[in-house]
């Protein structure tokens, strides 16, 4: 992971940010809001993951988006603008296509945001936030979140080790290959089970979740956290106000509503744009500062 300044903020700030962006991505359906959320999620994901992020976007999410997009008009025939008719006699409407696109955008936006969430909200942050409130659940959660990447790295290790003794999945007849594959899987399962039992025992021995147990954490809630938190709360409150007042409501059916924002809607929109782009602002600002400091650094000359 690239050095990310936003992840250095207090876990409460990180968590609140993701609660807001993911929650609003689910609730808001105005096309402009969807667009902003999608763009900032994709940029942030690429910023965090680099080349891997781009590959994931193109190979996994783009096809997923296209499939989701195409499915809606096949099953929904609502809408005032009839383009043509399906062979069975139901109409293909412009509104159903647009709604399909919107639903697909929501889906991949949320997946992308969760990808960022995984990068930022490491297990220690989750334990820090929820360890005292819901100890068992947060432990399970961190273990589960850790499970897939651990599995992947271990499978690599075991495969390499088996290859060294001539029992890799590429060697021998079909039957042997299958046998080798099963062996790798069995080792993998055994190892991860043992590991989870170890973890559970270890946490128990340390008195995890017991009353009166103190915890060490490296997190400080300093001034910049305060500013960002206030900013987040203001943006969030503004958007929630917009939602409650109903001015963020957007209709796809029966007729596609007007995309143009009017009056106070612009205020809500600006709040949403700032909210979504917040980590990028922080990171870019920090990067620029780092560069400018380097330029005048006496050590470099």
């Amino acid at each position: 992971m690239k050095k990310d300044t936003f992840s250095g903020f207090h876990p409460v700030v990180n968590m609140l940010y993701f609660v807001f962006v993911i929650g609003f991505a689910m609730i808001l359906n105005h096309p402009l809001y969807l667009g902003v959320s999608l763009v900032s999620a994709v940029i942030y994901s690429i910023y965090l993951k680099g080349k891997k992020g781009i590959r994931f976007q193109l190979l996994c999410l783009l096809p997923l988006m296209i499939i989701t997009m195409l499915l809606n008009p096949l099953f929904s025939h609502q809408g005032v603008t009839i383009l043509t008719y399906f062979p069975n006699g139901n109409p293909l409407t412009l509104e159903s296509i647009l709604y399909g696109i919107a639903a697909a955008v929501v889906l991949i936006t949320i997946i992308t945001w969760f990808g960022c969430f995984n990068e930022i909200m490491t297990s220690d942050k989750i334990i820090y936030l929820f360890g005292r409130v819901i100890p068992a659940l947060s432990l399970v959660l961190t273990m589960a979140l850790r499970f897939v990447p651990r599995f992947l790295s271990q499978i690599k290790q075991i495969t390499n080790a088996r290859k060294c003794i001539g029992q890799g999945v590429q060697e021998g007849s079909m039957r042997k290959r299958i046998r080798h594959g099963i062996k790798i899987l069995s080792v993998l399962v055994m190892r991860s089970m043992e590991h989870s039992v170890d973890t559970a025992d270890s946490m128990k021995n340390r008195g995890y979740g017991l009353p009166g147990r103190t915890e060490f954490s490296i997190y400080y809630f300093d001034r910049r956290d305060k500013y960002v938190l206030v900013f987040l709360l203001l943006c969030g409150a503004g958007i929630i106000a917009g939602l409650v007042s109903g001015s963020l409501k957007f209709l796809y059916y029966p007729a596609f509503g007007s995309v143009i924002l009017k009056g106070t809607q612009n205020v809500f929109y600006i709040a949403y744009v700032l909210l979504c782009l917040l980590p990028l602002f922080i990171n870019v600002k920090e990067d620029l500062k780092w560069k400018s400091l380097n330029r005048v650094s006496p050590f470099k000359t």
Binding site: H77, Q78, G79, V80, I82, Y85, G89, N90, P91, T93, P254
Partner: peptide
């Protein structure tokens, strides 16, 4: 409905 461009879903 088709002739009169009235939407219909069934």
């Amino acid at each position: 409905t088709r002739d009169k461009k009235i939407q219909l879903e069934f």
